[in-house]
Simulated scan of single mutants.
Amino acid sequence: MENDTFPVSFHLTLYRDQGHVKYVYFLIILIVYLAILLLNASIILVVMKEKSLHEPMYIFISCLSVNSLYGTAGLFPRLSIDILSDSHVISRPACFTQIYVIYTYSLSELPILAVMAYDRYVAICQPLRYHSIMTMRTTALLIAGAFTWPFFWIAMVVSLASRLPLCGRAITRLYCSNWSVVKLSCVSTASNNALGLFVLTSSVFLPSGFILFTYIRILVLCHKRSAEFRSKALQTCLPHMVTFVTYSIAIFCDVLLNRFELDQIMNIVTLVFSVEFLVVPPVLNPLIYGLTLPEIRKRNQLFSDCMS
């Protein structure tokens, strides 16, 4: 009975027997993952190496890359194995570990972007006080807060989900997700839903609201200043805004997939939505910052060669 309500493994049902085409999929996954590793590692290394980039803005950008490497490590190695495997079964410990890694990645992204928005707000709206406000100590505390909050609360979410007695073991995703496991519960999941709503609000909606408020304030100030001031301000803010919009769309797609049974309607949509937030931002973010910010571009051989 214990094995029925607390299964030792889960079955990922979205995988199908693709014959020899699976080797093509594996090659695509490998190329994408290598690109993510190369692009993000290059950002981290250039920020670490160049002392002139030891400033809050560039440190926060490198944190985005660290988070991307962390999050994609929770998906791509396992995804590569499952693509080539004939048995798409994942053990219970591996499933909950994957949930923890992917969810902490996804819920750390917006707090990091909120910290970056605050940094740009201080730099543009209070330039004379910037260095007294954005000290290395403040930068370290902001980074610690951006990571600690989701890491702590997702541990609570996963712990609560792992205690649920389950009436099945089929997960209709390419990877383990918390909502997919909770839906299998044989008992009420009201406490799980309440905790999930709190974590979603505090880690997604509140940072998003703060980011929007901050950039609206910046845009209002830019409207009142000279064209040269607007140009310089928008040059540093635009990459952050593009990153925020990109990730917001990606995470919205994942939330939509979790809450609505899209898998019963369109499998292609399900496949795209289920991995978008783990593929698009980790690839796009380093490209945006590496190609648009001159201080990174001219010191990073990878991006300087692209522009030459």
Rank of each mutant, 00 (worst) to 15 (best):
Q18Y: 13
Q18D: 09
H20A: 13
K22C: 09
Y23R: 08
Y23Q: 12
Y25E: 15
F26G: 13
L27N: 12
I28T: 13
V32R: 10
V32K: 10
Y33Q: 14
A35C: 15
L39N: 11
L39H: 10
N40I: 06
S42C: 09
I44R: 11
L45C: 10
E50N: 13
E50H: 10
K51Q: 13
L53G: 07
H54M: 07
H54F: 07
E55T: 14
Y58G: 00
Y58N: 02
Y58P: 03
I59A: 08
S62K: 09
S62C: 04
S65I: 01
S65F: 00
V66N: 02
S68C: 07
Y70L: 04
T72R: 01
A73F: 12
L75M: 11
F76N: 02
P77I: 00
P77Y: 00
P77M: 01
R78S: 10
R78W: 04
S80K: 02
I81F: 12
I81L: 08
I81V: 14
D82T: 00
I83R: 00
I83E: 02
I83W: 01
I83K: 02
L84C: 06
L84A: 06
D86K: 09
S87I: 07
S87G: 01
H88E: 03
V89W: 05
I90S: 01
S91N: 05
R92E: 11
C95D: 04
C95E: 03
C95K: 04
F96R: 03
F96H: 06
F96S: 07
I99F: 00
V101H: 04
